[in-house]
């Protein structure tokens, strides 16, 4: 039973206010959002910060719902991914991790690196370019999620790909929202 205490200690050490592991659906997304909102409300968080965190959470969670499902190699745990929110003294940290197919890794990496190379105006330009030209994908994404997350964060998106097996990588993504008013 020690793992319970260990998990508890890890969560405290990392200031995690919410961890969800499992299947991701729109219903789960709504529940997670409601919990996080209630949590921020009860801590009296500034509404502009709350909105930015909410915004990043939505894009992050809906990304997993849209793209997570076909990729998981463990069929009995289809759509399994992890989502966490940490609250530090000066920032919120929104992290997610989900399996992706090996072929999508270079595309994802390229997209995120391009976003991270842009400043505020560059991101604004890219956003407008995509929204003008993009049609919704068959999964219903506009291809704007990461750009929007980077704009709300104002900081680079941190990401990593961990090899799971021959065909799959675990895609981790970390977005920070400063708690200090700009």
């Amino acid at each position: 039973m020690k793992y319970i205490y260990d998990l508890h200690k890890t969560m405290l050490a990392r200031n995690l206010i919410l961890v969800y592991e499992g299947e991701f659906t729109q219903e789960i997304t709504k529940s997670v959002l409601a919990m996080a909102e209630r949590n921020m409300d009860s801590m009296g968080e500034e509404s502009s910060i709350k909105r930015k965190v909410f915004n990043v959470m939505v894009e992050c969670l809906q990304n997993i719902v849209k793209h997570g499902e076909d990729f998981n190699p463990f069929n009995e745990k289809k759509n399994s991914a992890v989502f966490m929110i940490g609250k530090q003294e000066t920032e919120y940290i929104i992290t997610s991790g989900n399996p992706v197919n090996e072929e999508t890794v270079p595309k994802l990496r390229e997209k995120l690196e391009r976003i991270n190379s842009l400043d505020k105006d560059g991101l604004k330009k890219l956003y407008k370019e995509i929204i003008k030209n993009a049609d919704l994908s068959e999964k219903g994404g506009a291809g704007l999620g990461f750009v929007d997350m980077a704009r709300k964060s104002g900081q680079p998106l941190q990401f990593d790909f961990e090899k799971m097996d021959d065909n799959h990588y675990f895609f981790s993504l970390k977005t920070t929202i400063s708690r200090e008013q700009a």
Partner: peptide, 12 residues
């Protein structure tokens, strides 16, 4: 009050 990026495409 809030819209996600997929909605922003539809708003356009």
């Amino acid at each position: 009050e809030y819209f996600n990026t997929a909605s922003s495409k539809l708003i356009l």
